[in-house]
């Protein structure tokens, strides 16, 4: 059996705005292995959440092209009933905002047991309740019998996120997608939740796609990292390579704009211009070119594709060979052709 459990090929997810379709995810190809955490990093508007929703088949009115191969199915072309059999059973999702992701009028026990009702029909009501209590224990909820009958608004944000995780892992999914799972939480709670996700990963042996804008979270959690910009993956590598030897100008710029906890006062790097909105995305050429205007146009490819620069390390476009920050001269740039 191959280690690959999810294969996305040339995925293009487009939304209709007025009379035109605009691709929020464009030409995304990647694989996820068993028991691996793949981090997907990008800023708002990069298409990372749209990618996650495509994999879960949660886009209602989007046009999806390409293939999402998972367990002998292609989620890009799947019937609703087959999709519903996969969702909650073989693949599950953890959401960003634990405040709104739970039904305010349903006790949490009922919300967790719904996944069991849907996929474990043979379970008796008593077995289900036992299983839910067991899950609440597993995600670290104190007094699970009591919490079972509580409503979401009676719980703190961290507790609610644990409930969402309990829902996601109820049927031991093979694929878990975590969409900014800690963005809405305090740092100490974030550390606990990330820890929990890691423990559970080993427990259920799942492949995890972790979507975040926080490079620190990726550095701590991921095995491999894909960086997204304007709907495309611009760089993908294992986590050490990506942080030690980032190549794509966007990856390098992003890393330089994080206030580093190690060093002090130096000026942060600012990426010029703004992330283009969906309808204004450049459709041709290197999409990052407009944000690095000091790099000569000839450095970019006409139709940028992914290049494998080292085993498992892919970079889009050729511009990384000629890239340097505006305040360093070309010669300082250690990366690239020699």
């Amino acid at each position: 059996m191959s280690k690959e459990m999810l294969e996305i090929k040339n995925l293009k997810t487009s939304f209709r705005i007025k009379d035109n379709y605009y691709a929020a995810v464009d030409d995304v190809t990647l694989t996820l292995n068993k028991n691996e955490i793949l981090g997907i990093v990008g800023e708002s508007g990069s298409g990372k959440s749209a990618l996650a929703f495509s994999v879960m088949g949660l886009h209602n009115r989007a046009k999806i092209e390409g293939n999402i191969l998972f367990k002998e199915h292609d989620i890009a072309n799947i019937s609703p009933s087959k999709l519903n059999k996969l969702r909650g059973e073989a693949m599950a999702m953890i959401f960003q905002d634990p405040l709104t992701a739970l039904n305010p009028l349903m006790i949490v026990g009922e919300q967790i047991s719904e996944t069991l009702i849907l996929h474990k029909k043979e379970m008796s009501q008593k077995q289900r309740k036992e299983k839910v209590i067991d899950l609440l224990n597993k995600v670290g909820i104190p007094m699970p019998e009591h919490v079972y009958g509580q409503y979401p608004h009676e719980l703190s944000g961290g507790m609610r996120q644990r409930i969402i995780i309990a829902i996601a892992i109820a049927n031991k999914p093979e694929l878990l997608i975590a969409d900014e799972p800690t963005t809405a939480l305090d740092v100490t709670i974030q550390a606990q939740i990330l820890d929990l996700i890691k423990t559970l990963k080993d427990d259920i042996d799942a492949g995890i796609i972790l979507i975040t804008h926080d490079l620190g979270v990726v550095a701590e959690m991921a095995d491999r990292v894909a960086v997204m910009y304007a709907g495309q993956i611009v760089e993908i590598a294992d986590v050490h390579t990506l942080f030690d030897n980032p190549l794509h100008p966007y990856t390098r710029s992003l890393l330089n704009s994080v206030p580093n906890t190690q060093e002090g006062q130096e000026e942060l790097h600012v990426i010029q211009g703004i992330v283009p909105s969906l309808s204004k995305l450049p459709r041709e050429g290197c999409r990052f070119a407009a944000r690095i205007p000091w790099i000569d146009d000839s450095a970019h490819e006409e139709n940028p594709v992914m290049h494998e620069v080292a085993p498992g390390h892919f970079v889009r476009c050729t511009c990384h060979n000629h890239f340097h920050f505006p305040d360093e001269s070309k010669e300082d740039s250690t990366h690239g052709i020699s």
């Binding site: 879960m56 949660l58 609703p80 009933s81 519903n84 059999k85 996969l86 969702r87 909650g88 059973e89 599950a92 999702m93 959401f95 905002d97 709104t100 992701a101 739970l102 039904n103 305010p104 349903m106 919300q111 719904e114 996944t115 849907l118 996929h119 969402i164 829902i167 996601a168």
Partner: peptide, 21 residues
């Protein structure tokens, strides 16, 4: 609402999403 997406992600069919949530 977001919790409707949660329900869909659980694998609830459209009719269940409507009736239960």
């Amino acid at each position: 609402k977001d919790f409707i997406i949660t329900a869909r992600a659980k694998g609830a069919s459209e009719s269940r999403v409507y009736n239960r949530h």
